[in-house]
Design a protein around this nucleic acid. Structure first.
Lengths: 143, 143
DNA sequence: TCTGTTATTTTGAGTCATTCACGATAAGTG
DNA sequence: CACTTATCGTGAATGACTCAAAATAACAGA
């Protein structure tokens, strides 16, 4: 179990809840706590809301998953960590896509010391309409 | 009154609360609702929490101010709108600085159609330690 | 200048996502 | 197998913000 090893390597205990959450998150990236809970409960109906938050918090701290907080949405989580990839969020339905750094490799990290700050991370969020929502709005206009 | 005119041009009524909030926000950019309320109450002690939210909401919709929501902070507001400037947030104290688009003029907007999305906005947030917090942490280490 | 309409503000309650506290449970060590 | 302690569950609490309806104030027209 690769996931079990990841947990152990981070000094965390291997529990069914954590494994299940990590697996679920692989298949549903950018999910929020609620969506994960709903999915996880299909196999483990007793799972509590707080446990999901606990797990998400612990695993985020351990670096096993990444929390993203797009404006207007609750926190989302994903397994892709470490690479500086960015996100494309639909302003309508909040769907999220991964975007590899668009301009060159890590151009967004340019200002390494600005206003006295030591910059460590550059986070880029693109906002737009996803394909589905584009269709919806054109249909609406036509009807 | 330039502010009054801005309000009227947006089809909004000119009220003391709105003028006061806009003025306050000029002097304290990147403030959150709570900070604005505290400052505004110095002159207008009866001002309600909800009024501040109402005003912030209405003025944001009208484009007279911009709402930013850095991960881990409550919503912040600023008067600079329309230019695509970005933000530099201190991971320690949440202080925020404006950053003009670093790489060229608007390079961050490169992916104009990705994954079927119609991209309209690119938002960049730099994270780092502000000068003050850098000092604090070095002092802590030394003490 | 007064009046009426309607946008704003206030008052008060309610929501949502998340966190805190603590007893119950189970992972992993010896 | 027993023990320590991380993790999970239960329950309550928080913070930021929204909703609803009554009270007030802007401002257009008389």
């Amino acid at each position: 179990m690769a996931l079990a090893r990841e947990l152990r390597d981070s000094g965390l205990r291997v529990t069914s809840g954590r494994i299940a959450l990590l697996e679920t998150l692989e298949s549903m990236p950018h999910s929020d706590a609620e969506a994960l809970l709903a999915e996880l409960r299909r196999a483990q109906p007793a799972l509590s809301v707080q446990s999901v938050h606990n797990i998400l918090h612990d695993l985020s701290d351990a670096g096993l998953l990444r929390r993203i907080e797009p404006a207007g949405s609750s926190s989302r989580y994903e397994r892709r960590t470490g690479d500086n990839h960015h996100h494309l969020v639909c302003t309508e339905c909040q769907a999220i896509e991964d975007v590899d750094c668009a301009v060159g490799h890590a151009p967004c990290l340019t200002p390494s010391a600005l206003a006295g700050y030591t910059v460590t991370v550059a986070e880029v969020t693109f906002w737009g309409l996803c394909a589905t929502c584009q269709n919806h709005s054109t249909n609406e206009g036509a009807s």
